[in-house]
Design a protein around this nucleic acid. Sequence first.
DNA 1: CTAGTTTATGTTATAATATAACATTGCATT
DNA 2: AATGCAATGTTATATTATAACATAAACTAG
Lengths: 162, 162
Amino acid sequence: MITNSRVAYQQHDHLRCQNAALQQARNLCVREKVRLTPIREAVLCMIWQSHRPLGAYKLIDQLSEESGKRMLPPTVYRALDFLLGLGLIHRIATLNAFIGCPFPGSPHSDVFLVCRLCGSTAECSVETVNSAIVATANRAGFEIESQAVEVTGLCPLCRGAS
Amino acid sequence: MITNSRVAYQQHDHLRCQNAALQQARNLCVREKVRLTPIREAVLCMIWQSHRPLGAYKLIDQLSEESGKRMLPPTVYRALDFLLGLGLIHRIATLNAFIGCPFPGSPHSDVFLVCRLCGSTAECSVETVNSAIVATANRAGFEIESQAVEVTGLCPLCRGAS
DNA sequence: CTAGTTTATGTTATAATATAACATTGCATT
DNA sequence: AATGCAATGTTATATTATAACATAAACTAG
C-alpha cells in the first residue's frame, strides 16, 4: 500500500508537501512536453495549501483575491482539467472538490479517506481493494475505465476529539 | 457477492424489477412506520424505469409531463432524500444521479458498475471489496461512516458492440 | 370529532457547480 | 515578420441543489 495518511492526518511541515508537489509537477510537465503556465501553477499551489479538497469556486475566490484580478470560472476549470489530465490532482466526486495527488505520474487508482469534520483527505493506493474491484468487474463482464473510491468518516484526530 | 449485474446488463422483463422494487418499498415503509406518499412513490417508480441512473432534473421534467402539473425542485429533492434515507435509492456521485437499490433494507455498501455508453448500472455488494476498504481505513486509524465505490467503464453489451 | 401537533407539500428565490461559444493574446517555428 | 497552435479572456447560460417561509394534509389525544 502507498498512502499519505500518516502525513495528511498529523501535524507536519506542510511547506514540504507543497514544494514537493510543485517540483514533481514541473518535472512531469517537462517530461510530457506540456506547459505549467502561471495560472496552472497557481491553481496547483492553491489546491496544495492543505490536505483538504478545495471547491472550484473557493479556488476562484482565493485566486482572485491573491492575484488582485478577477479569475473567471472557465479559466480555473481549464487549469483544473489540465491538472486532472496529468494526474496531478484528483476530483472528489462526493464533495465536488479537488485535491492534490501526492504520488502523481505512477498509474494508480485510489481510495480516498475523507474526514467529515476537518475535511482532511488521505489517498491510499491499495492492491487488495483494486484487485477485489477488478475481480468484481470481471465476474460481471464489465471493462473498467476509471473508478472512484471515496470513504467518508472520521480521521484519527477528529475521532480522538469527539 | 450479491449483485443484479446479470439482470441489469441483459434483456429482461423490467416490469418485474419495477414491481418488485415497489413492493419492497411498500413493505419497508410499513415496517419503518413511514409514509410512501404518492409523490414519493412516483419518484421511486420513475427512477426504476430503467437501470440507468436518473438526474434530478430529468426526473422533474418527466414527472411534470406525466402528472400534468409542474413539479418543482424542492418537492422532488425531498422525495429523493426520503428514499435515500430508507436506502431505497442510491446517489451516484460521479453522475449526480439516482438509481434504485435492488436489495434495500439489508445493510450493505456497494460497488456500482456504471456503463459509460449506455448508462446501465449494476450494484454489487462484495465482501472482498468491503473488507479491503475496512482494512485500509483501520490501518490509517480512520473510522468509516459511508462510502462510494463507483466504477466507470463498459458493460458486457456495449463492450461487445464496440 | 375537533383542537393541537407533526409531517408533507407548495412556492419563491437563490446558491453552488460547470460548460458553451467565440474573441483575443501570446508563444514557437519558420 | 508571417503563420499556426495553445492558452487565456469574456459573455452568457446550463445544471444541480438548497434556504426560507407558507399552506395543507394526516395523525393523536382528549
